[in-house]
């Protein structure tokens, strides 16, 4: 789907899915139980969490770091930290899978920022030469993603939500989310006014939060 095809009405099923949780209750319950066991020193529980989520985490870290060796090192550090400090997860702040992916993204961004001061020219190609695919969020990556820790249903829902964004909103979000760029850096790279970029990021995130909460598409500008 090209950006020009994205229309608010094209978000498939956003309304019907209404208030369904982002992550299944069964998965959430299992993750919380495993984390409780990890806190009790159960290495097997950490192993199961690794088996359930490492592919999704590495799938997130790869487009950020675009260096497999570096991404795998960062993945290992993430799970080691999970072992050392299991109490950093607070089940009242949301599902484990979402929390883990958020922490994974922040850690990968920290590594990325340490690796180099990234200019926009660099951002167009990764360390291993792979070009950044700006439509990575919109393409169904795998028709049978049986090894996904998070459900393919959630992936479809998020893709649908992303189609409700304008191309400008999506572009700024991609630069912030994958590139770890500040709003000031994004404004410089895209040659857009700072206020415009801040508005695009803010309204894009507000719209995604609204749609993913099951409230349906809404224009938020």
């Amino acid at each position: 789907m090209s950006n020009s095809d994205a229309k608010l009405d094209s978000a498939p099923g956003a309304e019907e899915r209404s208030t369904r949780p982002l992550y299944s209750i069964e998965d959430q319950a299992r993750d919380v139980a495993l984390m409780a066991s990890v806190a009790d020193g159960d290495r097997d529980a950490l192993g199961e969490l690794y088996d359930r989520h490492s592919s999704a985490v590495l799938g997130l870290m790869m487009p950020i770091l675009r260096d497999r060796r570096l991404a795998e090192e960062t993945l290992q550090d993430l799970f080691l930290n999970l072992w050392q400090r299991p109490h950093t997860y607070d089940s009242q702040r949301g599902a484990f899978a979402g929390w883990l992916l958020r922490v994974a993204r922040n850690r990968a961004i920290d590594v990325l920022r340490k690796q180099r001061e990234r200019r926009f020219a660099d951002f167009s190609a990764g360390a291993d030469g792979d070009p950044l695919d700006p439509t990575a969020w919109l393409i169904d990556p795998d028709p049978d993603p049986s090894d996904q820790a998070v459900s393919s249903d959630l992936g479809a829902r998020v893709r649908a939500a992303l189609t409700t964004l304008s191309p400008e909103q999506r572009e700024t979000l991609e630069l912030a989310y994958f590139g770890g760029l500040s709003h000031r850096e994004i404004a410089e790279q895209l040659k857009r006014p700072l206020g415009t970029v801040k508005t695009q990021i803010r309204s894009g995130m507000q719209r995604l939060a609204h749609v993913l909460a099951g409230l349906g598409p809404e224009r938020v500008e």
Binding site: L22, S54, S55, A56, L58, G59, L60, M62, P63, A71, E72, L75, R93, G94, A95, A97, G98, W99, L100, L101, R102, A104, R105, A136, W137, L138, D140, P141, D142, P145, D147, Q148, A149, V150, S151, L154, G155, A156, R157, V158, R159, L162, Y177, M205, L208, A209, L212
Partner: peptide
């Protein structure tokens, strides 16, 4: 908003370590 940043990883292709 934190839940959004976590969910945004869902459409990405998983990579087996």
């Amino acid at each position: 908003f934190e839940s959004v940043t976590g969910a945004l990883a869902a459409p990405l292709k998983p990579v087996t370590p």
